[in-house]
């Protein structure tokens, strides 16, 4: 056996031993029992203190509020989202009092304008929307309503409205293309506006023989993109001729 081999064997032996030792010391006992994680973590997490009681628990004592909420637009917003974890309060109602977000800061976390929010979600710009006064002075937090119905579609369709406002279609009002019942603004999920359904709709302005103003660019509707509806190629709220 050459000297080199024995010496290297010692070095590698020490390294491997160190690894085995480190593993035996540092790898948690229950690691790998149930997957690539520490199995005991599950029972540890299960044993952790419970902070949230869940909105069903609140209904037992705050029946009136629970009822109000379940009839309003916040019906899907759980109590503790606004009041914070309240398990302690459920256990000892008179000793522990949950907080309530009375200031302006909290509501915009959900209602501040953000283009990533789903279309139709009610959004405001917290800086310009009735500044300074607390939100709850005008909106009942448990069953929020807007004191008067919003005038602009952009209140809820902010992203579309902003895009539309700088598009070639900016001067065409939303309702020219979407017939909208007034009630859509108060019960938007139930009463829905119409949407253009066929090529003929766009052709009404863009066909060669349409009776619309001369400046509007024309296409030959019989041959132009004939196998698709127009909005498969042109985004109707920001049409581009590319």
């Amino acid at each position: 056996m050459p000297q080199q081999v024995t010496r290297l064997a010692v070095v590698f032996g020490i390294l491997i031993l160190a690894l085995v030792l480190a593993r035996s010391q540092l790898v948690p006992k229950t690691f790998g029992q149930a997957g690539h994680y520490r199995a005991a973590a599950v029972t540890e997490i299960a044993a952790a203190k419970i902070h949230y009681a869940g909105h069903e628990a609140c209904a037992a004592c705050h029946e009136d509020i629970a009822k109000t909420r379940s009839a309003g637009r916040h019906r899907n917003v759980a109590c503790e989202v606004c009041h914070g974890p309240a398990a302690d309060h459920v256990a000892a109602p008179t000793d522990v009092h949950p907080s309530a977000p009375k200031q302006r800061g909290r509501c915009p976390q959900c209602h501040g304008y953000d283009s990533a929010r789903p279309t139709g979600f009610p959004q405001i710009d917290p800086v310009t929307h009735n500044p300074v006064r607390p939100c709850i002075s005008c909106h009942q937090p448990h069953a929020p309503e807007t004191p008067r119905e919003p005038e602009a579609c952009g209140a809820c369709h902010g992203s579309i409205a902003r895009t539309h406002a700088v598009s070639a279609h900016a001067l065409i009002g939303c309702t020219r293309c979407h017939e909208t019942d007034r009630r859509h603004k108060t019960t938007p999920l139930l009463i829905r506006p119409s949407k253009p359904a066929s090529r003929a709709f766009c052709a009404g302005c863009h066909a060669r023989d349409a009776g619309s103003p001369k400046e509007i660019p024309r296409v030959d509707v019989t041959t132009h993109g004939e196998r698709y509806v127009c909005w498969q190629c042109h985004y109707p709220h920001f049409p581009e001729a590319k």
Binding site: P2, Q3, Q4, T6, R7, L8, V10, V11
Partner: peptide, 18 residues
């Protein structure tokens, strides 16, 4: 050197082959 100080011809040949 890890203490492997053998410089015999056989040992050097082993180095080369290894």
């Amino acid at each position: 050197t890890l203490g492997a100080t053998d410089l015999s011809e056989a040992s050097l040949r082993f180095d080369r082959n290894a």
